[in-house]
């Protein structure tokens, strides 16, 4: 189980230190998919890079909080350090399958490299075959030692997943893995991820800006805004009764598949830049329900079952219990 506790990620700029992620906590159980939703700049990618240990240190780093996998602290560890300490079982796939594979090395070599890191004595051939079967890559993809540019975007993302699975991950981080792909290919990859999650009993942290994708794929959702998780809960409860006005606003932006036309609703204003986060509730300047208490001081957590949100004046108030 992956546990992230009160994580703070800061960027050091010429003007001083700036918090991009401001106290994020979540857990992912085996076989569970957590959708981490937010606009660009909300801190969702920084969160995932921090978990993975891929922050560009020393400019960007975890300044407080704890990240643990099955109880083992991996807060500041790079992937290399994790592997050496036996915690190599977190993997990540990225948004751009086109550029995420080394263009001048053969696909087979790139998969083999990942296999050997985690198990130097592995039968690389057999294991490669196993991984390819898992991600449903046709054998032809490896024949004649194919290079990345010879494969389609969807195939490349399958290769990326195969590389990720080489460490037998307990948690797979998927950072907008389908954004760059065609709609039909998107569905195939999403289906594959769901299937792998169930078959391998693997947790997935699925990062996206697309609530529609989350509603199809995830078990639980965490909505990020200005570096904080403003609402979290199971997919069913959040979609049926959101508490946070921001979540409701995001849902209103999703085209309704039953009517078939996009409503073109937008949330007024823009998400704040990390150096301009307003005091109080960061969403208050854009929120129609905001009032005096929202503009300063700490924001209370409201709960409805396993469902929680950071808000003074939540929607569906009747569900909230003290």
């Amino acid at each position: 189980m992956l546990a992230v506790d009160d994580l703070v990620v800061s960027v050091v700029t010429s003007l001083g230190s700036l918090d991009i992620v401001r106290g994020v906590s979540f857990q992912i159980a085996p076989g569970e998919i957590l959708g981490l939703v937010g606009e660009s700049g909300s801190g969702k990618s920084m969160t995932s890079l921090a978990v993975m240990g891929l922050l560009e240190t020393p400019r960007t780093r975890v300044t407080s909080g704890r990240i643990a996998i099955d109880g083992a602290d991996i807060t500041h560890a790079t992937p290399y350090e994790r592997v050496r300490k036996g915690n190599g079982d977190i993997a990540m796939i990225f948004q751009e399958p086109m550029t995420s594979l080394n263009p001048v090395r053969r696909i087979g070599d790139q998969i083999a490299e990942a296999i050997k890191v985690h198990d130097p004595k592995a039968d690389v051939r057999a294991r490669t075959q196993e991984l390819m079967d898992l991600v449903r890559l046709p054998d032809s993809a490896l024949q004649h030692g194919a290079y990345p540019h010879e494969l389609s975007g969807g195939m490349r993302q399958r290769v990326m997943i195969a590389i990720a699975l080489a460490c037998r991950p307990k948690v797979l981080i998927a950072d907008e893995p389908t954004t760059a792909l065609d709609v039909t290919v998107q569905l195939q990859i999403l289906g594959l991820l769901r299937d792998l999650c169930d078959r391998l009993d693997m947790g997935i942290l699925f990062i996206t800006h697309d609530l529609g994708v989350v509603s199809q794929l995830a078990d639980r959702v965490a909505v990020m805004y200005a570096g904080q998780i403003v609402e979290t809960g199971s997919v069913r409860t959040i979609f049926s009764a959101p508490l946070h006005p921001y979540t409701a606003g995001l849902m209103a932006c999703v085209p309704d598949p039953s009517t078939g036309h996009a409503p073109l609703v937008t949330i007024p204003g823009q998400a704040p830049r990390p150096d301009e986060v307003p005091p109080g509730c960061p969403f208050s300047p854009r929120c129609s329900r905001a009032d005096t208490p929202c503009r300063s001081g700490p924001v209370p957590t409201v709960r409805a079952g396993d469902h929680a949100a950071l808000c003074h004046f939540p929607l569906n108030e009747e569900l909230v219990h003290a």
Partner: peptide
């Protein structure tokens, strides 16, 4: 792809 390589460990 360098980030991918780092991610491999």
């Amino acid at each position: 792809y360098v980030r991918t390589a780092r991610a491999k460990g």
